[in-house]
Structures are given as structure tokens and as C-alpha cells.
């Protein structure tokens, strides 16, 4: 009883904040999604109309396709690449902390600054096209063509996320008992075998965590599109969250925007559950 009271006293402040600023607004948004709420006029109940509109709206399907495409480009890279980076910076090398800091540094840069920097790199006469010209490759329309805009934005997201996810893996790696590696070495395991049979299985919970978090952030990505492409060219980088922003704040369709948010919530929920199920089955 005493322990329970203690636990509650620790949980309560966070619980209150979470309820006030996340749970209740989310529930309010659910309520709003069944109305034609536009902030200024009296609210009218419209039932499932907003959801029906979304499923018939080509703009929504296009935004959903863009969002899935972005997720496919970003999440596998952010789940796999940081593992290798973490293994690299987990070595006993001189100035290893400096290397860790350098890899983590992009995560500290604000998204807007990142957008400005990468806009310069991606410019038609920017550094990337200059480097390509040195090897005789024609300039690429990084942000101005349908074909390249999403991969380009994914590249920026991966660059910014690598160091961040590396930290989780690094923490995981450092908690792997060293005697496991020693035993493996005695059995004659090489570098790759040690990681395959010890590191990766031990990191599974972190891989799950990273997959969930990077999936959520890929589905929620919005600032980069707003600052770098404004959803263009011709809607090619408009994601679902960008559409929510436009509908809610530019077009005052709060009900419709809330309905779209909830569809996105359901999608993320399903993906997270699938992810968890896959992991549970493997362990």
C-alpha cells in the first residue's frame, strides 16, 4: 500500500500533464472529427461524413501514398544504419567521445536550420549537382521533381536521425555482457558471427523501440516539407500531417482535419501492433 502510494506520487505529475496536454486534446479531436467545427461557428454533428469525405478525397489518398513512401524510405534506414554506427563508436578508440558527439550533432540542429542548409545543397547549382558534374552526371532536380523529392527529403531525415537512434543502440550495446563475447571468441567466432549471434539478438528490444519511434516520426513528418518544399512540387511531398495542417489552419476545416488525424492514428496503431507481434513471435 505504502509502495503503491509512493508510485502514484511519482506518476501523478507526469500523468496530469499527459492527460491535460495529450490525452484530452486527442479525445477532443476525436469528438471534433464527427462535427463540422470551424472555430467560429456553432458546432454541428455530422456523423461519419468527414471520414467518408476523406476516403473519397484524391488529395487524401495522394498524401497517404506520399506518407507511406516516406516511411518506407526512412524507417528501414533508421533501424538498420544506426546499429552499425553504434558498433563503430562502441570501440575503444582515442577520442571516441568526440566521434559520438559528431555523429549525434545533426540531431541537435533545429529542423528549420537543417532545411536551409539542405536547400543549399540540393539547389540546382548547389554542391550535390556540382559534385555530379565533376563525374559527368547531369544535374538532378532534387527538390523540384516528383521522382526525387521524397528520396531527397528522406535523405535529410536519415542524416538528422542517425545519431539520435545511434545513442539508443549504443546504450543497448554497452549493456550486453562482455563475457558473452569472450565465450564466443573462445569458441572461435569471428567479428561478424559475434554480432550476428550476440549483438543483434540482445538488441532486439531496442530494434523494436527504434522501429516504432521512427515509424511514428516518419508518419508525423511535416516541418521539413513545410520549410523545404511546401508540399510540392504539385503535392508530391504533401504528407498526411501536412494536409491536416492545411485543412485545419488554412481552410478552417477542423472537423475534417481531425478525422484525417484519426485515420492516421489508426494506421500508426496498426503498424505498431504488427511490429510488436512480429517481435513477440521471434522472442
Amino acid at each position: 500500500m505504502y509502495k503503491a502510494r509512493h508510485a502514484w506520487s511519482f506518476l501523478l505529475p507526469a500523468g496530469i500533464l499527459l492527460t491535460t496536454f495529450t490525452l484530452l486534446p486527442a479525445l477532443a479531436a476525436l469528438g471534433i472529427s464527427f462535427t463540422n467545427y470551424n472555430v467560429f461557428q456553432p458546432v454541428e454533428w455530422v456523423g461519419l461524413d468527414n471520414f467518408k469525405t476523406a476516403f473519397q478525397d484524391e488529395e487524401f489518398w495522394s498524401a497517404l501514398r506520399n506518407t507511406f513512401y516516406f516511411w518506407v524510405l526512412v524507417t528501414p534506414a533508421l533501424v538498420v544504419l544506426p546499429v552499425f554506427l553504434a558498433i563503430l563508436v562502441n570501440q575503444n578508440l582515442r577520442a571516441i567521445k568526440l566521434y559520438r558527439l559528431i555523429y549525434y550533432f545533426p540531431a541537435l540542429v533545429s529542423v528549420v536550420i537543417t532545411a536551409i542548409l539542405w536547400n543549399w545543397l540540393f539547389a540546382s547549382d548547389g554542391i550535390f549537382n556540382y559534385l555530379l558534374s565533376l563525374v559527368g552526371v547531369n544535374p538532378v532536380d532534387w527538390l523540384t521533381s516528383r521522382k526525387f523529392v521524397m528520396p531527397s527529403l528522406a535523405m535529410v531525415t536519415i542524416w538528422q536521425g542517425l545519431g539520435y537512434y545511434m545513442l539508443f543502440y549504443l546504450a543497448g550495446l554497452q549493456s550486453v555482457p562482455t563475457d558473452l563475447y569472450e565465450a564466443a571468441e573462445l569458441d572461435g567466432a569471428n567479428f561478424w558471427q559475434k554480432h550476428r549471434h550476440i549483438t543483434f539478438p540482445m538488441l532486439k528490444p531496442i530494434i523494436f523501440f527504434t522501429a516504432v519511434i521512427s515509424t511514428m516520426s516518419a508518419f508525423k513528418e511535416f516541418t521539413l516539407m513545410l520549410t523545404m518544399t511546401e508540399g510540392g512540387p504539385i503535392g508530391a511531398s504533401k504528407t498526411v500531417v501536412y494536409m491536416v495542417f492545411e485543412k485545419a489552419f488554412k481552410e478552417l476545416e477542423m472537423g475534417y482535419a481531425s478525422a484525417i488525424s484519426f485515420i492516421l492514428f489508426i494506421i500508426i496503431l496498426i503498424l505498431t501492433l504488427l511490429n510488436k507481434r512480429t517481435l513477440d513471435q521471434e522472442t
Binding site: A28, G31, P42
Partner: peptide
Amino acid sequence: LLVFSLLLVTACSNKE
């Protein structure tokens, strides 16, 4: 929670 959130929404519009 659901009832509370709905109250919150209606409270906002009433205030308006």
C-alpha cells in the same frame, strides 16, 4: 475522459 473532453469542446464554443 470522453465526457470531459466533450465538455471541454462545448465549453469553448459556449464561451465564444
